[in-house]
Design a protein around this nucleic acid. Structure first.
Lengths: 324, 324
DNA sequence: TTGAAAGCGCTACCAA
DNA sequence: TTGGTAGCGCTTTCAA
């Protein structure tokens, strides 16, 4: 690995000049510049970002702390976050912390103590104080708490869309299976909206809740089995994510129900496989790209000390396919 | 942000001493140590990893360069790589470079010129020379080239398992849809093994190939439509990944075929959703954990200058489910 | 337009 | 057991 000194010697200039041509920071004699460029090429030089970061007092890397890359929702988000960060010239360091607060804290510290200038993180109940104390610019995805900056989809809207759609398709008794209802978690709104819409329309309903651990460990079978065991007369399911919905679908089919004739199903997220199952899944699409862009731009603003609204929400979209 | 100097002053010692207590690198007077610790606590000091990395000449971060996090196979691998790296005390920086060699080069350079000590990368044809020239310790996943260190599944074994299973289920004419056949790509072996097994058993077969771009853009519909258009008499499909297989499944069902009665399908990878569709997908399971562990341990060894075999392969497993 | 040199925060060697 | 100090590779004043 050649350094800026090697280049300077090779080109017969000072390191300051080399630095200038690297950064284009000031006027430089065309011939000098060419000499430097040639030297860089000859030595296959590439600047050491660590040294650079140290000298500049900051580096161009943000951390993304998520529960689990095996969850398509988060994988998709990670993909978009990385793409968006890159387009701004930033790198992203990823860390997964699925299970509990302690894991979360240690993952967060590894990122913030490391080399990231800011963090985008999944929401996990109870970490507000911790995040605030860390002083690292942080934006949370999926919370509606004002204690840190947060981005989320408009989950109330999603809940309304899903429920109304099911009702409009003639459902009379609807089961809702939610994720874990943590305080201030934005996805709770899906459930609240569902309940409200059902009651307003005099529709029977029943609620089931899964835990975060269920989700990470793909441990839905028990819950879903239970739904089909405890209820014989329902004709609609609104599931809080597409994985859950797709398991409801396959369970329905394997028990001899026809979908959508006997049971209609609406999922949430619109992950890639949702369109590929049979029948393809009706769902609420989250705008991954917008979500990611907003998250990246918000941390970047925070890092630069630019004022940013505490809570930002993004619209969702009902995607009607074959399960309703 | 307080620095090591602040702590030194506060504790009335030299920075060298502070550094020693941080790193536990040599014997220190108990009282001195306590003074330093107190000072660190009082100033809420946390060492700057950038400065540290620069001084040490290396940092604890590896890069993972993959085609696309939306592909469940890579997302799963990324998850395991991160987990495994973390257990060794290393961070991982992720970069996606789906489309072409130029994207790949720039992503690779961003990582290597950045702050990673080593790189784990997806295989992409034609980059061997480039990688070698970069001097960054690199392990490639999914190649059988000896020009850099590579880890892959035993794809010949996978191809054999899949084909024999289909034949044992009574298939007489089998379609195979492969990924892009890049030179020295390990997954080619699936196709070669398939052809060999069919010929050995006098089974009719036909080959289709998809491109990398098809995969990234989820652009399989055309190919699959074509398979069903051009062939009316086949009774088995061996697809080179589970996404492809699941689309074959839903296409079969939507065209009125029964699976597995009329058409039997075997996929490849065993991604999480494969077990959740209906009927659940018979597939070849790759050992993600082993693959990742081997990749991480191999880069780490490379970084530490430890001799490592050029090519390492991992066994696969046939998972029989409902589509055969 | 260029060069000299003082840092950025930390580690590690050499002395004491 | 401690302190002094020379780097690590780069950026950025200040002068020339």
């Amino acid at each position: 690995m050649s350094t800026i000194n090697d280049v300077a010697k090779e080109a017969n200039v000072s390191t300051a000049t080399v630095s200038r041509v690297i950064n284009g920071s000031s006027r430089i004699n065309v011939q000098t510049e060419k000499r430097v460029l040639d030297a860089m090429a000859k030595l296959n030089y590439s600047p050491n970002t660590i040294a650079r970061s140290l000298a500049k007092g900051h580096n161009d890397c943000i951390g993304f702390l998520l529960p689990d890359l095996n969850l398509p929702f988060w994988a998709k988000l990670a993909h978009e976050v990385e793409k968006c960060a890159r387009s701004h010239g930033w790198n992203v360091m990823i860390s997964c912390a699925p299970k509990n607060l302690d894991d979360y804290y240690s993952a967060y510290n590894r990122l913030s103590g490391s080399m990231v200038s800011g963090i985008i993180t999944t929401y996990i109940g109870g970490a507000d104080e911790f995040i605030k104390a860390s002083k690292t610019p942080t934006v949370t995805i999926g919370s509606i708490s004002k204690s840190s900056h947060s981005i989320s989809s408009n989950d109330e809207q999603g809940g309304i869309f899903a429920t109304r759609h099911l009702i409009s398709r003639g459902c009379k008794k609807i089961i809702h299976i939610s994720g874990e209802m943590l305080p201030e978690r934005s996805s709770n709104e899906r459930t609240y909206a569902f309940v409200k819409e059902c009651e307003r329309n005099g529709i029977q309903y029943k609620l089931y809740e899964t835990s975060l651990v269920d989700q990470v460990e793909n441990n839905y079978a028990g819950i879903i089995g239970n739904v089909f065991y405890e209820n014989t007369d329902f004709d609609g399911i609104f599931a809080s994510n597409d994985i859950l919905a797709s398991m409801c679908l396959s369970t329905s089919l394997s028990l001899g129900f026809q979908v959508p004739r006997d049971i209609k199903i609406v999922g949430y997220d619109d992950i890639p496989i949702s369109a590929m199952m049979y029948p393809p899944l009706t769902t609420i699409r989250q705008n991954y790209q917008k979500l990611s862009e907003l998250a990246v731009e918000t941390v970047l603003n925070l890092i630069n000390g630019i004022e940013v609204p505490k809570i930002q929400q993004i619209s969702v979209e009902l995607i009607v396919r074959g399960t309703t």
